[in-house]
């Protein structure tokens, strides 16, 4: 890899690791949230839905700032992690993961919520009349029927985490091989006038993002034609 040195490669590796861990966590956390949002008649549906969607409109620096304060030595999360002997989260990989989970949450929850809503009540009722309890129904009817929603949620969550910058800078700073992801590395290269490397990384990101979206949209198109 001529133009990319080992620092660049470490940034790419770190980015992929961060996006993977975040996506897995988001699918685990986002599924019950999306399920609740899709099924509830509670008055809390509006406020909770809005909170989940906040990262769509907030400047990443605002989110990063509050997370930094909360996870810092004097914040309530920071106090908690310290009392558990974990130290504080900012400027660590774990801190980045936490921040990314918040930041990419809507990109996972919303496709899942749409998928769950599209299934409607009927398949669940049919399953209940066929002796399937709630968990049985969820794993054997809801999950298979919402597979396209999970694929979309996973792709968007991953891609969006790969593309984050502001939150990473606020929470993770710029520590090579620990918190320096590709987007930050590009920023560094440009600051240092290393345009060749900046081009290689930026070009790679552009290609990656395009391919992800291409895969997503062409699979959707196919579904529409079939339906």
């Amino acid at each position: 890899m001529g133009p990319l040195d080992h620092v660049d490669l470490a940034a790419i590796w770190l980015t992929l690791k961060l996006a993977s861990v975040t996506t897995v966590l988001l699918l685990l956390i986002g599924t019950p949230i999306a399920w609740w949002l899709a099924r509830t008649r509670s008055r809390l549906k509006g406020p909770i839905g809005a909170v989940v969607a906040l990262p769509l409109v907030l400047p990443p620096t605002v989110l990063g700032f509050y997370l930094l304060v909360a996870m810092g030595p004097n914040g309530f999360v920071g106090q908690m992690t310290q009392s558990m002997g974990l130290g504080t989260l900012p400027f660590t990989f774990a801190g980045l993961v936490v921040a990314s989970v918040f930041y990419s949450m809507p990109f996972v929850v919303q496709p899942l919520q749409n998928a769950f809503e599209a299934i409607g009540n009927r398949p669940m009722e049919a399953a209940a009349t066929l002796r399937a309890g709630p968990w049985d129904t969820f794993f054997n009817v809801v999950l298979p029927l919402s597979k396209p929603g999970f694929v979309t949620a996973g792709i968007l969550g991953f891609a969006h985490t790969v593309g984050e910058f502001g939150v990473v800078l606020m929470i993770g700073g710029n520590i090579p091989e620990k918190t320096r992801v590709v987007s930050v590395q590009i920023y560094d290269h440009v600051e240092a006038m290393e345009y060749t490397q900046a081009h290689w990384l930026s070009g790679g990101m552009l290609l990656f993002s395009f391919l992800v979206l291409l895969a997503l949209y062409s699979s959707r198109l196919k579904q529409n034609w079939r339906g």
Binding site: A126, A128, T129, L130, R131, L145
Partner: peptide, 20 residues
Amino acid sequence: VPTHKRPLGYVFQEASLFPH
């Protein structure tokens, strides 16, 4: 007694087969 514990069969107006 929840539906899934009642020994009944239910035929819906639109069959409601599992499409998958």
